[in-house]
Simulated assay, not measured.
Amino acid sequence: MNNYNLNSYNNQALDSHVSGVMKRVYVKMFLAMIVTALAAWACTVIPGIGMFLATHSWVYWGVAILELVLVFSLSGAINKMSSSTASLIFYLYSLLNGVTFALIFMAYTPVSIFKTFAITAGVFGAMSIYGYFTERDLTKIGSFLTMAIIGLFIAMIVNLFWANSTLEWIVSIAGVIIFVGLT
């Protein structure tokens, strides 16, 4: 086999491997979104759960903080844990995400929620396509974006107390930029 054929074979094998990995990632992401949606739906339709979360803010904030702890622990230890452990933590995160989203679903109209999810899905898809076809190494900006997401969380807490509508727009735009980078 000459060098050209060997390189062509290696590229095909790599493309096939990457394609398989990407398919598994998207299946897991899809399943996690289903878990999130079902948890949010259950919290809004089962009598008392949504009201309990709305009237016991310490529980809601506890769930939100646990959600962040899971994100940071998964991000920090992903290379050290087994695939099944990482998947379990990811699905637990998805469940908690649904619980925190439940109050949002109760506060906003289905149309506004649909628009938000459609925009997010579109951005995720576009950035995934860009990441798949680009030759650039995009991992270099990860630590910067991790710090930026901490800043986003702090800004959201500040906005909670002052309810500054201008800040809401800034946080939304910053959130999109940060999550585009993380995607």
Rank of each mutant, 00 (worst) to 15 (best):
N2Q: 06
N3I: 12
Y4W: 07
N5V: 13
L6C: 03
L6W: 06
L6D: 06
S8D: 02
N10Q: 08
N11K: 11
L14G: 10
S16C: 13
S16Q: 15
H17L: 14
H17S: 15
K23D: 09
V25W: 01
V25R: 02
V27Q: 02
M29N: 03
L31K: 02
I34V: 13
I34R: 01
I34M: 05
V35T: 04
A42D: 06
G48L: 02
H56L: 02
S57L: 12
V59P: 09
W61N: 13
V63K: 10
V63L: 15
L68K: 05
L74S: 09
S75G: 15
I78T: 15
Y93G: 02
S94H: 00
L103H: 00
I104W: 00
I104P: 00
A107H: 06
T109H: 11
T120L: 13
G125F: 03
Y130Q: 08
Y132E: 06
Y132S: 11
D137T: 05
D137C: 00
D137G: 00
T139E: 08
T139W: 08
K140L: 12
G142Q: 13
F144C: 11
F144G: 14
I149L: 08
A155E: 07
I157G: 05
A163H: 10
N164D: 11
N164C: 07
E168A: 11
W169A: 04
W169K: 06
V171A: 13
I173M: 15
I173A: 15
T183G: 06
